[in-house]
Design a protein around this nucleic acid. Structure first.
Length: 291
DNA sequence: TCCATTTGACCGCT
DNA sequence: AGCGGTCAAATGGA
């Protein structure tokens, strides 16, 4: 164990490095958006750009992990109190749970043009008008949260630029055993490889996500945060991601796939919307580790 | 009657 | 204090 001071210093350096990488990626992502028409015509330009984004993403992921790890080592005493702070008990009584974790450091975003059917069944649990956003944001959780403790969550919002497309942000991974598993981005923070992998790896899914108790929402969220998801340009070259799933009638188990139904066609992985989430990695505290 | 969606209110985080 | 995420009662459809 290194001294807390030393680790703290390196943590500051790591953080600065990560922030620089985030800026780089932000800029590159902007560029990517601007060059979209060019990419349509020049596949080579697209693949080069993808490579660039991939490199940045990987660097960012690794740097963020380093930073996260150092926090994990030193941050024991700085654990944020989950249920602490203001625990207002409203007149409604104890209807509300005090413990609601917000931190979801790992996410990835898709911009999809027609279908929101990703092969999973989602249940809408909220909708919110977002400041400075034209369209409201809808909140979905996996239908199997109750029966299988699946903590996958997604947010859907119409694109302001192109209302015919939706910006879908996923949080956590599916641990449910849905027969219509869509490709998932899976990695365990405890996985020594620390690599980003796209595609289905059912072994990892089942192994890393012990079915949590349904009454332990807070702990469940900690578990879900263990899933490291990084949006990588490599995803665009992965057919499994580019062509998610066949519609397969959408409804398995008799559940209704929530949201705006249509048929899947093109799925573009976009980085823009995922960038800010990545910054959350900086704020990831020891909640993400079993300590 | 059951289940998904809607929506206002609550609450965490910055 | 304000914004965004979540809860849960109300509502509606099958």
């Amino acid at each position: 164990m290194s001294s807390p001071t030393k680790v703290a210093a390196s943590s500051v350096a790591d953080r600065a490095a990560v922030q620089s990488l985030i800026r780089i990626r932000e800029t590159a992502a902007h560029l990517g958006v601007l060059l979209r028409p060019v990419f349509l015509e020049h596949a080579a330009a697209k693949s080069t750009f993808d490579e660039l984004m991939d490199s940045v993403s990987r660097s960012l992921t690794l740097a963020a992990f380093e930073e996260t790890a150092s926090v994990a080592v030193t941050g024991e005493g700085q654990l944020r109190e989950i249920s602490g702070g203001k625990s207002k008990i409203s007149s409604v009584g104890e209807r509300r749970r005090v413990c609601r974790r917000r931190s979801r450091p790992y996410s990835w975003t898709k911009v999809i043009s027609q279908s929101l059917d990703d092969g999973h069944t989602w249940r809408k649990y909220g909708q919110k008008v977002i400041q400075s956003a034209k369209y409201p944001r809808s909140y979905f959780r996996c239908t199997h949260k109750q029966d299988q403790g699946c903590m996958a969550i997604r947010q859907v919002q119409k694109s302001q630029d192109d209302p015919s497309t939706y910006i879908v942000t996923y949080f956590g991974e599916h641990t449910c055993k849905s027969p219509s598993m869509a490709p998932q981005v899976i990695i365990s923070a405890l996985d020594s490889s620390r690599l980003i992998s796209f595609g289905v790896d059912s072994e990892k899914i089942t192994r890393q996500a012990p079915p949590p108790s349904l009454e332990q929402e807070c702990d469940e969220e900690v578990l879900s945060n263990l899933t490291t998801v990084s949006l990588s340009a490599a995803a665009t070259s992965n057919p499994a991601v580019a062509a998610p799933v066949a519609p397969l009638a959408g409804h398995d188990h008799g559940d209704v796939t929530s949201g705006f139904q249509a048929h899947t066609s093109s799925v573009d992985m976009e980085f823009m919307e995922g960038l800010l989430e990545f910054e959350n990695l900086l704020d990831v505290d020891t909640d993400c580790f079993f300590l």
